[in-house]
């Protein structure tokens, strides 16, 4: 074995007692190996003598303030759940969207002014917020009133719809089509939905 190898084995702490004694004996008679041995020993001692360094002040604080914001476990669980149930999440988002839309429309409407759609001779009583179809008058088509009451003394040949109001029918009054009162959010929503579908389907007319 080369002597430099045995010196390495010595400093790796891999030599047996017998091997160490053999090495020591060799070193006594070989100045080259002795020098090598001394130099390795010195360099290890020098490196080991290098004092221990401490982290700078505020190191922990600096690390803590540099940490990325980590979500709590709960959020992670929710994320996992939502990944596994995309349809439910989509439905929930849709519902949320719809209900906020409905709410906006509904609140926007109930505070709003009276709106009338329909063609014919009717009177509008602004003070009482009432649409009056006088006796003898005929509304040929549909009549829709929002945010107001309807007092039917004459005739309506189409449908009468009252949203966010009430309809009164005089004994002489007549409505040929359907009468609908929509006061609750849900029934209003139902009405809107029905409207949407009847507008979409072409064979609804007649």
């Amino acid at each position: 074995m080369k002597h430099s190898d045995s010196i390495h084995r010595y400093f790796d702490g891999e030599m047996t007692q017998i091997e160490r004694e053999q090495l020591y004996r060799h070193l006594e008679g070989c100045s080259e190996c002795q020098e090598h041995y001394d130099e390795v020993k010195k360099s290890i001692a020098l490196v080991q003598s290098a004092s221990h360094i401490q982290a700078p002040k505020n190191f922990t604080e600096n690390v803590m303030s540099a940490l990325p914001q980590k979500k709590k476990k709960r959020t992670i669980a929710w994320k996992k759940w939502s990944k596994n149930h995309p349809v439910l999440v989509a439905a929930a988002v849709f519902l949320l969207f719809m209900s906020s839309m409905t709410w906006l429309n509904w609140t926007g409407m109930s505070g709003g002014e009276m709106a009338i759609s329909g063609v014919g001779n009717f009177e509008v009583d602004q003070e009482n917020n009432t649409v009056i179809i006088p006796e003898g008058e005929v509304i040929e088509g549909d009549l829709t009133v929002r945010n107001g009451d309807v007092d039917v003394q004459g005739e309506v040949h189409g449908d009468l719809t009252v949203i966010n109001g009430e309809q009164y029918m005089a004994s002489a009054g007549q409505v040929a089509g359907n009468i609908e009162e929509v006061n609750q959010v849900l029934s209003w929503l139902w009405y809107e939905t029905k409207e949407l579908f009847s507008n979409l389907s072409p064979d609804q007319e007649d």
Binding site: A50, H52, I53, Q54, A55, P56, F59, T60, V63, M64, L67, K70, K71, K72, K73, I76
Partner: peptide, 30 residues
């Protein structure tokens, strides 16, 4: 692991000198 970030400060405190020492000896400047 449960999201209690504050607990990490104790870990940093316990290992900062060792980690800093290795880093300093490796890169050679503060």
């Amino acid at each position: 692991k449960a999201g209690e970030t504050e607990a990490f400060a104790q870990i940093v405190d316990a290992y900062k000198d060792k980690v800093y020492q290795v880093a300093f000896r490796m890169v050679g400047n503060a």
